[in-house]
Design a protein around this nucleic acid. Structure first.
Lengths: 173, 173
DNA sequence: CAATAATGAGTGAGTACTTACAATCTGATT
DNA sequence: AATCAGATTGTAAGTACTCACTCATTATTG
């Protein structure tokens, strides 16, 4: 990957995340990336192709975030590590996650399969710990974390830190 | 309000909710509303003014949904009624709520003040019932309901009904 | 000297919005 | 009832502009 191609992806990610895909002109992406507009279309088939490339990178980064949970063998720790997920988002990755959540409303890019492995692992953990309804407990945790992640992305980590210990103690059997 | 003005609002609401504000052309709104494009700009200052008008209607409808909770005096019932909120969304109001959630990412239209009265009432209810951390319990409930509402809007009521009794029993002290 | 990377003015389609004009409604006066 | 002026509601065809995308040309590299 050339430097300029990477510049384009970074600029597009930043602009798509803050202003939305449709609201951002390719001319603006080129300007922010310090690149000619034509170069965008040399590297990507079209504007949507650029978005697709960004979202493809996403899959890898997301699976890397989930890995430690999937390899954990202690059910209690599975739950704790999951609960701590949204609080460990790196600031420099905020744009990336903002885009993920914004695109959840576009059916084409909303892919619940991404969460499936974590959901399954959580369900297993709740079952191990003797919870009455592991599938719903697991789904509920995902729901809570989604809302907290969104709040962090919008209002900053500080505003939501209070939930970290609150949740962990709530799920400490 | 004339029939055609109402047509414009309905068409715009439907299109904004399903395709997003920026992605919808005023010419398309006019077509769906069965109206000339110019009429949009007679009734509304500009495209954004049309969105504003839609969102103003929103305030009223939202406060009507919240009213029964705010007048409730039994803390246990306050919690139960709140938990049941997302399951009582009328199908014909789906577009309206979809737009509300989509616009949450636009700072201009994301207004947490709307939820404040319910949040306060919930906090009071949890305090009455002797919960250890009423403010966080209240905020957590709102988070859960947000996620469930979004899931209902995306996947339908049926897919989430399982949570109704699950949540109510979870908060039955 | 190829081959590739990069440019940026140009293109047609689509955009929000305007304008000039026509139809319809309102209600006060014959 | 009939009339009709003024206001309101509506239309069709623009206007200026922005957009995603192209292409002929130029720089860079191995």
């Amino acid at each position: 990957m050339t430097d300029k191609k990477e510049n384009i992806i970074q600029a597009a990610l930043e602009l798509f995340a803050s202003e939305g895909y449709n609201a951002v002109a390719t001319s603006k992406i080129a300007k922010v990336a310090g690149v000619s507009e034509g170069l965008i279309f040399r590297h990507f088939e079209n504007k949507k192709g650029l978005l697709d490339a960004i979202m493809q990178d996403a899959e890898i980064r997301i699976s890397q975030v989930f890995a430690p949970i999937l390899f954990e063998l202690d059910p209690q720790k599975v739950i704790q590590k999951t609960l701590e997920l949204p609080f460990s988002i790196e600031q420099k990755e905020y744009n990336f996650w903002k885009l993920q959540y914004k695109l959840k409303w576009e059916p084409e890019y909303h892919n619940p399969r991404k969460m499936k492995p974590v959901l399954d692992k959580l369900e297993w953990a709740f079952a191990e710990l003797g919870y009455q309804n592991p599938p719903l407990e697991a789904e509920l945790v995902i729901y809570i974390l989604d809302s907290i992640a969104i709040a962090i992305l919008r209002e900053g980590l500080q505003s939501q830190l209070k939930f970290k210990s609150f949740l962990v103690s709530k799920y400490n059997s």
